[in-house]
Design a protein around this nucleic acid. Sequence first.
DNA 1: ATTCTTCTTGAGCAATGTTCATTTTCATAC
DNA 2: GTATGAAAATGAACATTGCTCAAGAAGAAT
Lengths: 170, 170
Amino acid sequence: MKVRDVAEAAGCSIGSVYNEFGDFDGLILTVNRETVGALTARLKAVPSDDPLRQLHGLADAYLGFATEHANLLRSLFEHRMEDDRPFPEDILAMVMDAFALMHAPLVRLLPDRDPGDVALLSRMMFSAVHGIISLGLEERMVAVPPEMLRERLGQFVDTHLAGLGVIRRA
Amino acid sequence: MKVRDVAEAAGCSIGSVYNEFGDFDGLILTVNRETVGALTARLKAVPSDDPLRQLHGLADAYLGFATEHANLLRSLFEHRMEDDRPFPEDILAMVMDAFALMHAPLVRLLPDRDPGDVALLSRMMFSAVHGIISLGLEERMVAVPPEMLRERLGQFVDTHLAGLGVIRRA
DNA sequence: ATTCTTCTTGAGCAATGTTCATTTTCATAC
DNA sequence: GTATGAAAATGAACATTGCTCAAGAAGAAT
């Protein structure tokens, strides 16, 4: 993404882009907000009646979104602000909202465990799934090939839930 | 990293940097080669007598390296080549060498499973650990806080191995 | 000493984020 | 309808940075 390209696409001058977004970071962050919104909408569409099916559905939805919008997700997770400016509060809040969708079913599956513990477990699980998907779609390094990603991701969730004692080993 | 800074640090001209490394990508890749080498050395230092302890040791070593050299690892995993040039074969081979260290103990722990299956399992596990660590050290988004990373990473490995039926649930 | 090869240099180019004085637009007042 | 002032839009110009290449320096061979 280049400021000049944005200006041309919008049919305005370079200066107007800066009036609207402040600087390049502002431009990126605007895109990232959009990305989190779209991702959240997609995750919210996953049925929440059965927590186990929901977890699988969420992982699958995340994979789908990552597949279709690899660049957007990379921007969201890899973009670094200039001058060590802090990451914007509002985007963080939006991400937490999306994350709550993944946290809830795990809470239902582990009702007896310490809530703080489950919070960390769900963060671990999200980070793990994110790593598997992002490396897998990268298609380089030691990753799971994309064509197997969907099936393997389901297995991974099952294996981990089995390790947590939520379900039996297949 | 800037070409001009490298030239100054090396006490030579800008042109000489280009003679030596070709272009900016070449510069980055040289650093990345160094990074993989250092990481491999560190992983090789993990005792391999007990596969279970080895897996924990490898995860811990990876965390240690990532903590001390966060920027180098980011460069290795996030750098994109210009013009969609292919990722260099030799670096890929180096990474595979490092990865073999993580693959071996899992093979020992799962002697009866299909080797191709175990290969994918170890790739999954590496990607998961990588995701947990890289997001965790990022300290933004939905990540595991760095101060808990070490302990939680150990738990994660145990949980996953339990799910695979290698060890019992704690 | 001469010639040829190889290496080194850094001025200059191109791309791109950024600024800001100037111009244009537009609402309000009379 | 004109004047006035605020607000917005503009794009020329600047700074940074990756990159090129003609010219020069250094070295090898005869």
